[in-house]
Write a protein that binds this DNA or RNA. Structure first.
Lengths: 215, 215, 215, 215
DNA sequence: CATGAATGAGAGTTCATTCAT
DNA sequence: TATGAATGAACTCTCATTCAT
């Protein structure tokens, strides 16, 4: 009886407290995303994150143990959202072009859609230190792995895999930045541009810089 | 000794001092370069720089007013070295390909040659925050300007200038990283790769996506 | 089940609660005893005590208002156990020797018997700060009072009462420590030693350091 | 010339700065001594020490890295002062009584003389947690070692060495406290008392309680 | 009552910066 | 100028304590 009066309330509504807790976690993560984007990871302090929040300083530590930990949580979160999309897009690709365009498309789409979270992505005034967007970070390793695999299974001509990956990453990075700086970002345009650049480039690329013989 | 015979004491001392002074500036700049590379710009503190120096903390302020200022000085220094090379290389270009390859060549060469100054370019521990190499930063705006100009004077097809610039910058950035991670970096190979990618891509690029974006 | 048949719900619950309540008090007191012994009183925080408990932090404050209060409660508890023993032992003493030996015996016995509660009595790492055992603290004032009384009623030669008390306390303190550090502590041996020391010493003591006339 | 004008100034007066530095070290050490005595080692915070000082918070860390380190420095300092006195006093002893009385005399004298440094030795109000005086700590191990040696070389009857040492330490501890609480402390009186107690006690002690305990 | 998240004061420590020497 | 100790603001993190559930 007694118990019935007390416990189930929380259980029914999934717990007001549990709800508030989840919400605070969100608040902190969102604030962190903002602040990292504004100040860069290195310059950001835990206090900066807290200040971007209506919470008290101690509260932060109920959720994360350090700035590193929030950051990791952010990355995980993003990766969780981005990975399946990228994976699915690439798996069904049979041509190199499809692989490339699907990758860019998924990436630029995500960046543009999640833009709300990064309103003030700002290159530190005079200093211009690039801190990788979370989105970028999440896609980074993913792309490397997939691209290596794709090259491995012959989807691409035998070019220098590391160079190609690096180039795609660099293009993606920078175009994403450009996109985000535009009033009405057009991910499709970026996708077309990037894909054409890479595919056209590949065609023109001297095959096999690496030791493998010509003939 | 020698000097003693030739000049009055005052000047001699002034000379020595001026020398020492210039030397200290160097010491600080070199230390800063190292530390920025190791810790990233944001995370670096003035103390970190001083600690990487045999100088006393107060001495720092005889030369720079803040970390921002050393950083600026570093950029200026690099730009001073890099700019004439790039400018010269590009000025005599008549073809787009020459423009592109000369740019990449100048850039990669510089990066590789100045490598001694950046022994420990290191992606911050687990976190992977990219801090732009000073060299990269220095070439950045330069390239934008020149590329815009080149596009303007019809050297390139009328593609989205911003996209193209961003792509070249991105490729340059990332290939530079790859180069620096290699035992025996081959700037020519990187130049060939990057040039082929861009030129081949350009050929494949749908002309005039957009009339050139606003800001 | 049983209870269900005999008592109305309210009382049953109240009974259970009262029981749980008393048990929680115990849990906290025991945890506190441990933690005080491990960290020393000064360095112990309320959190430390709570952490040594399966209880929630808020629960602590249903029983005690502060670390001081738990501590006081511990002392009271111990005093409650130790006092009657000491009192009884001393009351029936007619000789000084009996008084002294009964005091030491009661004390050492208690210390050894309650040893289970103090498994890790530990001198703080490198620092060697003595934290008085609770038992010691409890017996402290008691001894002072009794000894003063005994001296007052002529049980001891007219020595400096304060010096004598202090000495007995000091001996008791330190021997207790030694006892607790031994594999198989022998309270009787300690009692014999301490008693002999004090009684022999008393015999040798120059009477009346204090103002009281000779004759 | 130049150097002559600059350097020697500092060297001549042993350096105003060096002097100030040494003085600050003193200030911190003295404050620490006070605060440890007042609050106990465990409860003392670095900030407490700083507050007992006219210095700024950061200054503490120019001298010591932690509370542990100041504490260690204090102990070292005291040991440095106390050790030679005790050693010398004991070395020339041929009788047990001389050994004991010299030890106590040296100890009590030191405690009384250094009293100025410990004006407010205060047992924390209701709580009474004893923290060993620095003086006591310094003499502690010393005494143990010397006493063991003395027993070893037959200066004392073959009593339980550990018990005897503990007793002497306990007596010394507590009498020192009493002394320090008195208006006009008389170290000679304490010495006589303690010596008589121990020597008289020794005479009365049952020889060889145990073959000397293990560890 | 028990719970445990929230709170903000305060501890330990580092920082940028000044200034007497 | 070079030095490096002093300073106090600011940072990371923990604490005691409250209070909605």
């Amino acid at each position: 009886m007694e118990a019935q009066l007390r416990r189930p309330v929380e259980q029914r509504v999934a717990g007001k407290r549990a709800q508030a807790k989840e919400q605070n976690r969100r608040v902190i993560l969102d604030a962190a995303r903002q602040v990292f984007a504004e100040l860069g990871y290195g310059a950001t302090t835990v206090r900066d994150i807290i200040r971007a929040t209506p919470l008290a300083s101690g509260t932060f530590y109920n959720y994360f143990r350090s700035k590193e930990e929030v950051f990791q949580a952010m990355r995980d979160e993003t990766a969780l959202a981005l990975r399946p999309v990228l994976r699915e897009a690439r798996l069904k690709c049979e041509t190199a072009e499809a692989f490339v365009s699907e990758t860019f498309r998924a990436f630029f789409s995500y960046v543009v859609e999640s833009r709300a979270n990064l309103p003030k992505l700002k290159r530190t005034e005079a200093v211009h230190v690039r801190v990788d967007t979370i989105e970028v970070l999440a896609g980074f390793e993913e792309l490397r792995a997939d691209l290596d695999a794709a090259i491995g299974r012959g989807l691409f001509a035998r070019v220098d895999a590391e160079f190609l990956t690096a180039s795609m990453v660099g293009i993606a990075f920078e175009l994403a930045d450009v996109l985000q700086s535009r009033e009405t970002p057009d991910p499709e345009a970026a996708t077309r541009f990037a894909t054409a650049l890479v595919m056209g480039g590949l065609a023109a690329l001297p095959k096999r810089e690496s030791p493998v013989p010509a003939a």
